[in-house]
């Protein structure tokens, strides 16, 4: 905890204006991401989990600079990635890259794999001609493809192969951070295992740091170092994988884990939900999940409260005197 983190998201909010419901009403805003603060340490895999619309993908896009934050700072090794003093799009490309969810939409159908990868090298003046070709071949081999795949077009590959190409593209500029946006959800089970193994192997070999966006708790538990649970734009629980999965404490986290259809359920009837960690007496959880929070409503007074080593959960402020 003493070393400065690799990436720090400080009080990030992303608001979208909603279409007016009436001419006389003021414009409402959707708080897609609301006061989110997260840190990513060197060599770590931080997973952000939650369901559709919880703001996890918007957070990822903000980290990538593909979505301008409404408020908040994103710092890389203490230097700002957004706002004044932010690096250019080109410089930023060397810091973080993204692997996308849909391996079919994430490759330009009109450009061959080799050309796509070499264009990156050329743009950043990293390699030209035969040297560039060698580096592309090396990268394709590294992600489990063959060098002669370079001349092919995206439609000639299967879903799993395309996701490997997506990973190769993300690694081409040798970034320090990989943002994985649901990297498995479009793939078959048997392919998922291959891609998870590849990602874990690459992380160790290249000393990468991952931010993984996912709704798949089994995979998250399997690969993460730390986990943040998002619910309606907020982080409601955050901690090391062990404490979040062994003592899920926020009611939403508990419901999420309880909802996972489990293969073992048939054998041992219903899986027992692990116990929650104790919270300060009298504290209320926020947001209250018995009511669907209105994502347009302004933030209430709540904060993440430490309930274990590095394990924090969002509690309402007034309950905490």
């Amino acid at each position: 905890m003493t070393a400065s983190p690799l990436l720090e998201i400080r009080d990030l909010s992303v608001h979208f204006p909603l279409p007016r419901t009436s001419m006389f009403q003021p414009r409402e805003t959707l708080r897609a991401v609301d006061h989110v603060s997260l840190t990513l340490n060197e060599g770590e895999c931080l997973s952000i989990v939650g369901e559709s619309g919880c703001g996890k993908s918007t957070t990822a896009l903000a980290v990538m600079g593909l979505q301008e934050p409404t408020v908040g700072r994103i710092l890389y090794r203490g230097k700002p990635l957004n706002g004044p003093g932010a690096p250019s799009r080109k410089d930023r490309a060397r810091i973080a890259q993204m692997v996308f969810q849909d391996p079919f939409a994430s490759l330009n159908p009109r450009i061959s794999i080799g050309r796509m990868l070499m264009a990156q090298l050329a743009l950043h003046d990293l390699a030209k001609g035969s040297e560039a070709r060698d580096r592309v071949a090396e990268m394709l081999t590294r992600v489990g493809l063959s060098p002669d795949h370079a001349s092919r077009f995206p439609h000639e590959f299967s879903g799993g192969q395309r996701q490997r190409i997506g990973i190769a593209r993300a690694l081409m500029l040798d970034p320090r951070i990989l943002v994985l946006d649901e990297p498995l959800s479009a793939l078959d089970v048997s392919i998922q295992a291959q891609i998870i193994n590849l990602l874990m192997e690459l992380q160790e070999r290249l000393k990468l740091s991952y931010i993984m966006i996912s709704h798949d708790l089994s995979v998250v538990e399997h690969v993460s170092d730390r986990v943040a649970v998002m619910y309606f734009g907020r982080v409601v629980e955050e901690g090391g994988w062990k404490s979040v999965f062994a003592t899920p404490t926020h009611p939403y986290t508990r419901r999420l884990i309880d909802s996972v259809p489990d293969m073992d359920a048939v054998l041992s009837d219903r899986r027992q939900l692990p116990p929650a960690a104790p919270v300060p007496s009298g504290a209320r959880f926020a947001p209250d999940i018995t009511h669907r929070p209105d994502p347009r409503a302004p933030a209430d007074a709540s904060g993440l409260v430490e309930i274990g080593a590095g394990h924090r959960v969002r509690l309402a402020m007034q309950g905490m005197t």
Binding site: R89, A93, M98, A105, S106, R169
Partner: peptide
């Protein structure tokens, strides 16, 4: 909004370049 355009942005390509090489051919 297709991810290959987002990927090109992430890789540092300029807007003009993206319009010419990613969007126009499609």
């Amino acid at each position: 909004s297709q991810s290959f355009v987002l990927a090109a942005k992430s890789a540092g390509f300029g807007d003009w370049n993206i319009m010419r090489t990613q969007i126009l051919p499609n």
